[in-house]
């Protein structure tokens, strides 16, 4: 399913980060993709199931969640290392990447694991880390 991705802060994200970036609470609050109920029905997925979100710059597996308010075609991932796998490098000479309004593809990803923060950072370093 094609969708427009908005990233941003949320209460759960802000509380999760204050709880600790390495905490399960943080991961649970930001490694999620909030979607409209009708979009979830079209993809035949339930809240808590994994979805793969792909932008022109990368892809990431996160858990699906029902958005609080309806807006078909718009998906929301709270700011964080998971959302930023999808954000492009261009700043258009402003210094600020486009964190909002990204065109993405959302698909069901049954059985795929949502990576931990440690796994994402180990991947950035090229693997072989033990924390």
């Amino acid at each position: 399913m094609k969708a427009v991705l908005i990233t941003g802060t949320s209460i759960a994200q802000a509380q999760g980060k204050e709880h600790g970036k390495l905490s399960a609470k943080y991961k649970d609050s930001v490694a999620v993709c909030e979607m409209d109920e009708s979009d979830m029905a079209a993809l035949k997925i339930e809240p808590g199931q994994t979805v793969k979100v792909t932008s022109p710059y990368g892809s990431i597996t996160v858990k699906a969640a029902k958005s609080r308010e309806p807006r078909p075609g718009l998906v929301f991932i709270p700011v964080g290392p998971w959302a930023n796998r999808l954000v492009g490098p261009e700043t258009g000479g402003t210094g600020t990447p486009s964190y909002k309004g990204l065109e993405v593809e959302v698909e069901p990803a049954p059985g795929e694991k949502v990576p931990d923060l440690e796994e994402l950072m180990a991947e950035a370093r090229g693997g072989n880390e033990k924390w």
């Binding site: 700011v79 964080g80 954000v87």
Partner: peptide, 11 residues
């Protein structure tokens, strides 16, 4: 925490 808030290419 730029590793959490920068695009992946920067991280």
């Amino acid at each position: 925490d730029p590793a959490s808030h920068m695009p992946w290419a920067a991280v």
